[in-house]
Amino acid sequence: MTRIWITAILLLNIICGGCDQYATEEQNNPLFGLGVPATDTLIRKWDDDVRPDGKGFPAGEGDARSGKIVYSQKCASCHGANADDNTFGKLVSLPGDTSKSKSVGSYWPYASTVFDYIRRAMPFNAPGSLTNDEVYGLTAFILAGNSLIPDTVVLDASVIPKIQMPAMRKFVPDDRNGGFEVR
């Protein structure tokens, strides 16, 4: 098989005489064949992102009550007792908050992002240390704090994709295109 490929490449090089030899070789070569097949174990270990459509959410569940307990232990020292401190990004706009500062309630377009980010990067001093139940609980605590879900809702893989975030309607794709118009 290899010999057939080599013959084919040589023939192509002769036919292509005038074209860029390097490009021709790369386009017609079989694969370089570098790297090793990824094991399912590695993919499962590293692939921890979740999408708005629900793909990637793990087993587990949590509600605002369980989330509040975790929050007060592991999050409140940076984000404030009520999660409305803006030092490291405001998480919660409490009822009656008229400030223009961004919070999950006022600015985040997808609930899945809250889960994804807490699981991937929080708490700041011990990222990756939370259980999936804790992440579901914290997500519920933050969403409920913003009055986006009732306090009683239990979040799991099937519930989060259904949550509508009010900020979503504000998001528009980039309309800048270069050219004469400033956008």
Binding site: D49, V50, R51, Y107, W108, Y110, T113, D116, Y117, A121
Partner: peptide, 17 residues
Amino acid sequence: RRIEVSDQPFMTREETS
């Protein structure tokens, strides 16, 4: 460390908030 090929964006924190 990882590239995951998809047919839609993932809506991560750095491209939303």
